[in-house]
Write a protein that binds this DNA or RNA. Sequence first.
DNA 1: AGCGTTTTTGCATACGTATTCAATAAAAGA
DNA 2: TCTTTTATTGAATACGTATGCAAAAACGCT
Lengths: 328, 328
Amino acid sequence: MKHTVTAKDVAKLAGVSQSSVSRVFFEGAKVSEKTRTKIIAAAEELGYRPNEFARSLITNRTKIIGIVMKGVHNPFYPQVLKQFAAAFKKKGYSILFVHTNNDEIEAEDVETLLNYNVAGVIITDAVMALTVGEEFKKNKIPVVFFNRKLNSDEFYSVSCNNLDAGRKVAEYFFDKGVSEMAYIAGDADTSTSRDRQKGFQEVLKQKKARYRHYSSDYTYNGGFKTAMHMVAEGDLPSAIFVANDIMALGVLDALKANSIGVPGQTKVIGFDNIEMAAWPAYQLTTWEQPIDKMVHATVAYLLEEIAEYTGAAETLEVDGRLIERATT
Amino acid sequence: MKHTVTAKDVAKLAGVSQSSVSRVFFEGAKVSEKTRTKIIAAAEELGYRPNEFARSLITNRTKIIGIVMKGVHNPFYPQVLKQFAAAFKKKGYSILFVHTNNDEIEAEDVETLLNYNVAGVIITDAVMALTVGEEFKKNKIPVVFFNRKLNSDEFYSVSCNNLDAGRKVAEYFFDKGVSEMAYIAGDADTSTSRDRQKGFQEVLKQKKARYRHYSSDYTYNGGFKTAMHMVAEGDLPSAIFVANDIMALGVLDALKANSIGVPGQTKVIGFDNIEMAAWPAYQLTTWEQPIDKMVHATVAYLLEEIAEYTGAAETLEVDGRLIERATT
DNA sequence: AGCGTTTTTGCATACGTATTCAATAAAAGA
DNA sequence: TCTTTTATTGAATACGTATGCAAAAACGCT
């Protein structure tokens, strides 16, 4: 028979009141050292664990962080998920994982997050309708957009400084003596792809170089197909900036399939620095996203807002750096 | 100011009792159609959402499934996570994601799962101490080991029929006219690696062929290093069965680095059929794990046990199949 | 219409904890 | 030692929901 041991049981065994037991397990409350040890002993003996639900019911707060994620196929995101899980575990928070299929987070997903009254929300690789955002604001739940920059200043967002990265990549190509270059975009409606493009394009324009644009979708197959198409077109640019690594790998494979030498005939730079970029088969030069810093900033912001909600928003952009390998 | 709208509020607006509101939102309870529509309208107007915590407090049940996962670096697992999230979302369950660093799930992780009184637990790419298992049993929480076979019949486990797969791979190699073959193991203490080895070795023994064993760790780098080592040794086997795909990719890259032709000089078969196995750069022949079936079985079992706990355990092994590509 | 039967509803209570307030114990000061 | 102040404790209550029980309403039948 299942007998959940409650604070009352512990109280009885320790010969104190339930309130005292509560005070021992609720940090910030004061109990004398004597009764504390008594209670801890009793709790230990019975295997007491405070009921998280009763707790949340009365405090109207939880120790749950909701993480909404779409791109589980891009190894960048599982990596991010892992880091968040580790960081929040340290702080005593648990992760409610919500997978969304859509670019825009679905109403159902928001429902879930609100139902569980999460302490904070991280949305990664997806965006959110404004009306939905209001819902979170109304409930004073802090939200962070991870790896997505927002137009509005309504929400905190943290991403890599994509604009700057785009510029630096272009300059790097010029330094290498290349002037014929192209950009392969990811999903067109993502800030990440747009900003990378913008910075890249800006420098090309300034140097009066021709800008060539290709659209793809942030997947390996997308990158592969786009590159195949480019090759078929003829007139291959001598350098290609690809909006993320997983696409860049597809590009490399397509080039290889066409026996096009890299970096000899054309150079390739990706974005993210996922583990696979370092594999011998690819040795992809790429722009590293400083995941650690980005995660750290996100966690710090959320914890602050959880401690005292201000609703203050900011668009944080962290500097990344170029990792030079064999494709340039 | 934050005003959470409660069932009482809805009741007042609809001119009924709180109980009736509860009955509308608790499936399985009966209310007349008339009051139901009245209540739904009122709830709609106020934006009422049942408080999941109050609910769980009284029913002593939750709609949360805990998923414990270690191997986030192996793309197989994010894929699995996604499928579980999708399957359980359909059934109205949410996912509590627990990342563990250890092969053996940590006490802290179990605490979390128990604190949230999860309805069921899925442990993937990790095992659990028996004492810990008791804790779940005591609380009548069903547990499934995913992709791990247990010695004991205390818990439900679902995995691919690794033994059979190992045999079939060996037979396949023989059919191809190969008789000199090796196995590269993953983590030695995982059932998956052991069973694959066992089946493989069994056929070799039966055909009186020499069995060669190499130990690795289920990572790309592990596979790479092991293959480098094998090449350095000289006397390369003419076929290699690698315990999972991500290692196999490392093996292929190592062979390529040594200009060893595949499948000419040696053949390679992996395990899992992760997306990358199909990439042009690899075209890895591999044994497909039927994720869909495995997930389906897991979900079905958990839902049954949640509906009515029996504690019945079973060791389910689903048949996979060989996906033939360019490395054999 | 009148009676028995079934369905629907409201009242009251319980779930396990945090927290206010008053009471008690301990400490400090004189 | 007695009084005043401070620290600790216990009793009572609230959080928002589900549910057993009894009352009320609706229904079916003659």
